[in-house]
Lab assay of single mutants.
Amino acid sequence: NKFNKEQQWATYEILNLPNLNEEQRKAFIDSLKDDPSQSANLLAEAKKLNDAQA
């Protein structure tokens, strides 16, 4: 299913963002699990935070 693929991709991407700390990473991944339909939005937020902390 589409959300499952998006969720897996977003999880992979978030795990590989270098500037997030473990707590932030875990929070994003927990949110992905809670609502896979928000995968794209959550990934965008994670990338923004990652860039802000660069």
Rank of each mutant, 00 (worst) to 15 (best):
P36S: 04
N21R: 13
N21T: 14
P18T: 08
A46W: 01
Q24G: 01
P18K: 07
N16Y: 06
L17A: 01
I14F: 03
A44K: 13
Y12Q: 14
P18W: 04
N19M: 08
S37D: 07
D34E: 14
R25Y: 03
W9Q: 13
Y12E: 15
A54L: 10
A46Q: 01
D30H: 10
A40V: 14
N16I: 08
A27I: 14
L42V: 15
E45K: 08
L20Y: 00
Q53H: 05
N50Y: 01
L20T: 00
A44F: 11
Q8E: 15
F28Q: 00
D34S: 14
N4E: 15
K26T: 11
L42H: 04
Q8H: 06
L15I: 07
I14P: 01
Q7H: 06
L17E: 00
N21Q: 09
K2R: 05
A44V: 11
K2D: 15
Q24F: 01
L32Y: 02
T11S: 12
L20M: 02
I14D: 01
E6L: 09
L49M: 12
L49Y: 05
L32T: 03
F28D: 00
L42K: 06
F3I: 05
A44R: 08
R25E: 01
P36T: 03
E13V: 14
D30F: 07
P18A: 07
K33I: 14
P36F: 05
I29L: 10
L43Y: 09
D30A: 11
K48L: 13
F3N: 09
D51E: 12
Y12K: 11
L20Q: 00
N41D: 13
L17M: 15
A54R: 01
L43G: 01
L20W: 00
S39G: 08
L49V: 11
K5H: 09
L43Q: 03
E23S: 10
F28S: 01
T11Y: 15
Q38R: 09
A27P: 02
L43S: 03
F28Y: 08
Y12M: 14
N41S: 13
N21G: 06
K48E: 10
Q53Y: 08
L49P: 00
L42N: 03
Q53L: 05
P18N: 05
L15P: 01
D51Y: 09
L17Y: 05
K5M: 05
E23P: 06
S31N: 12
P18H: 07
S37L: 05
A40Q: 12
D35E: 08
P36Y: 04
I14G: 01
K5A: 15
L49E: 03
K5T: 13
N19T: 03
K2E: 15
A54G: 14
A27Q: 15
N19W: 14
E45P: 00
Q8S: 06
Q7R: 03
N4T: 08
Q53T: 05
D30P: 00
A10T: 07
N19P: 00
S31Y: 08
I29N: 03
A27R: 12
D35W: 11
Q53W: 06
E22S: 09
D34R: 11
K47L: 07
N16L: 13
N41R: 11
K5D: 14
P36G: 06
F3M: 03
Q7Y: 15
N50A: 04
N21V: 06
N1A: 02
N50V: 01
D51W: 08
R25V: 08
Q24W: 02
L32Q: 02
D35M: 10
K48G: 06
Q24V: 04
N41I: 14
E23G: 10
Y12V: 10
L15N: 13
Q53E: 04
Y12G: 12
F28M: 04
E45V: 11
F28A: 03
Q7E: 13
T11W: 15
S37R: 07
L32I: 15
L43N: 01
L49N: 02
E22K: 10
A46F: 02
N21P: 02
K33T: 12
K26A: 11
E6S: 03
P36I: 04
A44P: 01
R25I: 05
K26D: 08
K5W: 08
N41E: 13
K26Y: 08
K33H: 14
N4H: 14
E45N: 05
Q8G: 05
K33V: 14
E13D: 04
E22M: 13
T11M: 15
Q38V: 06
D30T: 12
Y12I: 12
F28V: 02
Q38M: 13
N50M: 01
A10D: 04
A52I: 12
A46Y: 02
Q8P: 03
Q7W: 12
P36E: 04
N50K: 00
A44T: 11
A27M: 13
Q38D: 10
A52Y: 10
A52E: 13
K26L: 12
E22Q: 13
A46V: 02
D30L: 11
D51V: 09
E23L: 09
D34P: 02
D51K: 10
P36K: 03
K47D: 02
P36N: 04
E45R: 07
S37V: 05
I29P: 00
N4R: 02
Y12P: 02
L20E: 00
E6A: 03
A52L: 14
S39Y: 15
N16Q: 07
K48R: 13
D30R: 10
K2S: 12
I14T: 01
K2T: 12
A46I: 02
Y12H: 13
P18R: 06
K33Q: 05
I14L: 05
Y12N: 14
W9Y: 14
A54Q: 12
S37Y: 05
